[in-house]
């Protein structure tokens, strides 16, 4: 069994590696995106200040808190103080203030914008409401480039896994190569394992090269464990490859396969948080995003890369990915068909 899997695995690898156009596209696209985004967002392009306001009550009386009327500051409502404090640490919020309990505020001493927003707060509210209690939260800034890197790698992985397996299997079926394999002792499961293993190795190699290269060239952030990130990548790639196999299990037309894969790709890319966070989106959209493996991959990867999260913090995402892979693979093997008939 193993030698048959290895034979198909090796042949598929050679077929892909020698297809220079596709290979180059898989590597150059994310690099070009990262280079462009680095140029566009590498500097501090934002001019607006952002302040989180802890709000449990329906409304806050703005007359009592003139700071909330300050121009050029965007005030965002916060209901989870712990999350908001983490954003202060990352410089995603310039300051966090709680007027409801204890007149307290949190600021990152290494944040230049936090410094100016704090001055504005003290100049306005403290004059009206007396002294405010200050707390400091340490942490380095997270550039958009740092934040978007997992998204771009995840997106590249998504395209590579879904099309690299789904589309190729449909092509094999259409041109009769699967039928030829069926006439050999190869079992469907052996063929599927070989395809998954081949794509997994290629995708993980390419993703690792790009991640390390970007980290080296652009100095992108990595606060967590490389091993855990590798595990997230592996489980994520397995889930995406399995999804591609499920789509390809019976389809006989490359056009239909392309359409079906795009029907999955685009919502997944838009809703999984590749380019922007869905924190401001409605609950329905956030819940819908959870059906995509890429959402769980990116949530876990960003937690590890940006927050230094450990296995205990991301195990739920990993479990969801494992469960999704099992369902996709099971259904894919169940419905798999060698020939177009």
């Amino acid at each position: 069994m193993l030698k048959r899997i290895l034979a198909i695995f090796k042949a598929r690898n050679l077929e892909f590696i020698r297809d220079r156009g596709t290979m180059a596209w898989n590597i150059l696209l994310p690099i070009a995106l990262m280079a462009g985004l680095s140029l566009a967002f590498g500097g501090d392009g934002r001019t607006q200040y952002t302040v989180g306001v802890v709000q449990q009550a329906e409304v806050i009386d703005r007359a009592e808190h003139p700071f909330l009327e300050t121009q050029y500051i965007r005030f965002v409502t916060v209901d989870d103080v712990a999350v908001a404090m983490r954003k202060v640490a990352r410089h995603q919020l310039d300051l966090l203030v709680d007027f409801e309990e204890g007149n307290e505020y949190w600021v990152n001493p290494s944040s230049p914008k936090g410094y100016f927003v704090e001055l504005a707060l003290l100049q306005t509210d403290s004059l009206v409401n007396g002294s405010l209690q200050k707390s400091e939260i340490d942490g380095d800034a997270i550039d958009y480039v740092d934040w978007v890197l997992p998204g771009i790698l995840g997106m590249n992985m998504m395209f590579s896994c879904l099309f690299g397996v789904g589309y190729v299997v449909v092509r094999y079926r259409k041109n009769g190569f699967l039928k030829r394999l069926r006439a050999t002792p190869v079992r469907p499961l052996e063929f599927i394992i070989a395809q998954v293993a081949s794509r997994l190795m290629l995708t993980m190699t390419i993703t690792a090269i790009i991640f390390i290269g970007t980290h080296w060239a652009l100095g992108t952030r990595m606060d967590g464990s490389y091993l855990l990130l590798l595990l997230i990548g592996l489980l994520g790639a397995v889930s995406l490859v399995s999804m591609g196999l499920l789509v390809a299990s019976r389809v006989t037309s490359e056009e239909l396969a392309g359409g079906l894969l795009n029907m999955i790709n685009w919502p997944m890319m838009l809703l999984s948080g590749v380019w922007f966070s869905l924190e401001g989106a409605g609950q329905l959209v956030q819940s819908a995003a959870k059906i995509f493996p890429l959402t769980h991959i990116l949530d876990a990867a960003r937690a590890v890369i940006l927050d230094g999260a450990g296995l205990a913090d991301v195990w739920v995402s990993l479990a969801v990915l494992v469960a999704m892979s099992a369902v996709f693979l099971g259904l894919g093997a169940r419905f798999f068909r060698w020939d177009p008939a």
């Binding site: 030698k3 048959r4 198909i8 042949a11 590696i17 009769g176 190569f177 030829r180 050999t184």
Partner: peptide, 22 residues
């Protein structure tokens, strides 16, 4: 078979070895 497509980018020898290994 009457019509069989083989894998792209593989040589004759590589294809023979692949099938033989099955």
């Amino acid at each position: 078979f009457q019509n069989t497509a083989l894998q792209d980018n593989l040589t004759v020898m590589e294809t023979l070895i692949m099938f033989q290994t099955l």
